[in-house]
Design a protein around this nucleic acid. Structure first.
Length: 591
DNA sequence: TTAGGGTTAG
């Protein structure tokens, strides 16, 4: 084999070469083989030294073996001819290329697979296929696939995830339907494809089909479905799956446990999440992070901090994400001093340098608390990097809340230019102008958006009942019971009017709301979902809704009043956090 | 020895 390969793949070469050398090893003769390595001048001598290295128990010492391999690969007398690849050689070399995207080397190895005649080896071929998929080179992957003399279920499944990774979910589905045999991994690859691309209906449908066909539901499928439940906030389905895990004694590893905890957190069941968390015998960093983030999201900042302290006590070293969640917990609960403390703490005690995201959290923390000058200083003077759109977004958002038009305009303009395809940025700036009554500027932003062809993300709300997930868009009438829903909504609005509800039709504010402007305020997706919830649940039952955007001001006010008028707890998860509406109040305290 | 699952601010 040419040396060019061996200059970079020392770990795999190590395995190859060392096993070949072991086979050829001679009895020991030299007292200090390690020192002699650097002076070694022939392969025969090296073989002798290697056998001593093994006897001295140094064969897994990277430094020692690295020197030995270097002699084989690079010295004049070095020789790799003893080394012949077998069917274990190429898969590991190929995988090594995947780690750091070594495309050129990967292609070289591909050539060697052909040259050494491993075209018929399924493992080598499947790994090549996987390699091209991981590079995102689907055409190459497809070429490998098409040329394979025998394709097994692994080849087909790899191709499915290849299409999925590039967002070609329909192509993935065509592959799924056309393949001869499927196993759990195949079904899961397809389900995961749907979940990753937010096509939940199809994911749930495929899961049901899988159950009808009695395919084994292993922990991978279970995890994918939990993730689907998490994304849409489908608590009942999630609970069913959790029950299934217990009943069928599916092995609960850290990853799966974390997925369950995350599902309960994001479906609004913090207590249940904490219960699972506490019952876990061993927790990974992700598990802690997830639980801390869960408390943060629900506005339980103090509890999140207590949990973080427990994490430190239990010697689980926090990482960047831990601090992201800790700082966000502080921001959501207005714990400015605590946030300041932990921002320092992460570097001073744990040696973690703040990243862009951490600055974003700090800007958010200061901004929400009204410390706009401090937030600005952080962005303009103290950050060690140029603020990205996320950080600026937090700052402009704070300016909007506290009515600082001047500062907000300055950074808002920068923000729009920095992230010109993101409709949310325009909406934010326009909203800022609207709060100051600067309608001309609002109109200017709207025109800019139109000129650039930037579309607002369509808003939707999801409610799950009896295992059925129903989705609503503003003004939508696609639901089979839409007539009943609208008439229920009229009744609801009538009732809260008597409690003093006045639609927040603050002129243009409505026009630039995140939900589609064509639809009247009172037909926002969230109100439709609540009406449907009231229609379908028993009195006293909690109504849970998930939104893809933020709750608008009018819906927020209406939800509070509905919770009072109908004596219901309404839990809404929006893009950023949870709102627990009860007795006319909301847990977010108007943040 | 090969495919499929988890945590990430606003």
């Amino acid at each position: 084999m040419p040396h060019v390969l061996f200059n970079r793949f020392s770990r795999d070469d190590f395995c190859c070469i060392s096993s070949a050398l072991v086979a050829a090893a001679a009895p020991p003769s030299n007292p200090n083989p390690v020192k002699c390595l650097d002076k070694c001048s022939s392969m025969a001598e090296l073989k002798q030294l290697h056998s001593q290295i093994i006897r001295l128990g140094l064969s897994s010492d990277n430094d020692v073996m690295g020197r030995a391999i270097k002699i084989c690969a690079l010295s004049k007398s070095g020789d790799l001819d003893s080394v012949l690849p077998n069917n274990f050689t190429f898969p590991s070399l190929v995988r090594a290329c995947c780690i750091d995207n070594w495309v050129v080397e990967g292609k070289q190895i591909h050539a060697h697979v052909v040259k050494f005649g491993f075209l018929n080896d399924g493992f080598s071929q499947n790994n090549l296929l996987y390699m091209y998929v991981s590079f995102g080179l689907l055409e190459e992957a497809r070429r490998v696939f098409d040329k394979m003399p025998r394709r097994d279920v692994v080849s087909w499944t790899t191709l499915i995830s290849g299409y999925s990774q590039l967002g070609l979910v329909n192509d993935a589905y065509d592959v799924f339907r056309s393949m001869p045999d499927r196993n759990s991994a195949t079904w899961n690859a397809m389900i995961a494809a749907y979940v990753q691309h937010n096509r939940f209906h199809e994911a749930f449908a495929l899961f049901n089909e899988m159950r009808t066909e009695n395919v084994e539901l292993d922990r991978y499928v279970i995890a994918s479905m939990l993730s689907a439940c998490t994304k849409v906030g489908a608590l009942e389905q999630g609970e069913w799956i959790h029950g299934y895990i217990k009943k069928n004694e599916i092995k609960m590893d850290t990853k799966l446990a974390t997925t369950i905890i995350d599902m309960y957190c994001k479906c609004g069941c913090l207590e249940k999440a904490f219960e699972v968390f506490n019952e876990l015998p061993s927790k990974g960093i992700s598990t802690w992070n997830c639980m801390i983030g869960g408390f943060a999201m629900h506005g339980r900042g103090e509890v999140a901090i207590e949990l973080f302290k427990a994490m430190e006590r239990e010697t689980a070293a926090p990482d960047n994400i831990t601090f992201l969640n800790v700082l966000s917990a502080c921001a959501h609960s207005g714990l400015v001093e605590t946030g300041r403390h932990y921002f320092k703490h992460m570097t001073e005690v744990h040696g973690l340098e703040p990243r862009m995201e951490h600055y974003g959290c700090m800007v958010d923390l200061f901004g929400r608390a009204g410390l706009l000058e401090e937030a600005r200083k952080l962005v303009e003077e103290e950050m060690s990097m140029e603020a990205d759109a996320g950080v600026l977004g937090a700052l402009v958002g704070a300016c909007k809340i506290h009515g600082n038009i001047e500062l907000g305009e300055k950074f808002g303009k920068r923000l729009v230019e920095l992230d010109p395809d993101n409709s949310g940025r325009y909406v934010l700036l326009a909203n800022l102008y609207a709060t100051a009554g600067k309608w001309d500027d609002v109109a200017k932003i709207r025109r800019l958006m139109n000129d650039r062809g930037v579309k607002k993300a369509p808003g939707f709300s999801v409610i799950e009942m009896e295992g059925m997930v129903s989705e609503f868009i503003a003004g939508g009438r696609a639901h089979p019971e839409s007539r009943e829903i609208y008439s229920k909504l009229d009744e609801v609005l009538e009732r809260i009017r008597s409690l003093g509800y006045v639609p927040d039709t603050d002129g243009v504010l409505q026009d630039i709301d995140e939900e589609e402007k064509e639809n009247p305020l009172n037909h926002h997706s969230e109100k439709l979902a609540i009406a449907f919830g009231l229609l379908k649940t028993k009195s006293g039952q909690t109504i849970r809704i998930t939104k893809n955007l933020r709750v608008c001001r009018d819906c927020h006010q209406a939800s509070k009043l509905i919770s009072k008028a109908f004596d219901r707890e309404i839990i809404v998860r929006d893009r950023n956090r949870f709102h627990h509406f009860k007795n006319g109040e909301c847990s977010c305290n108007e943040f």
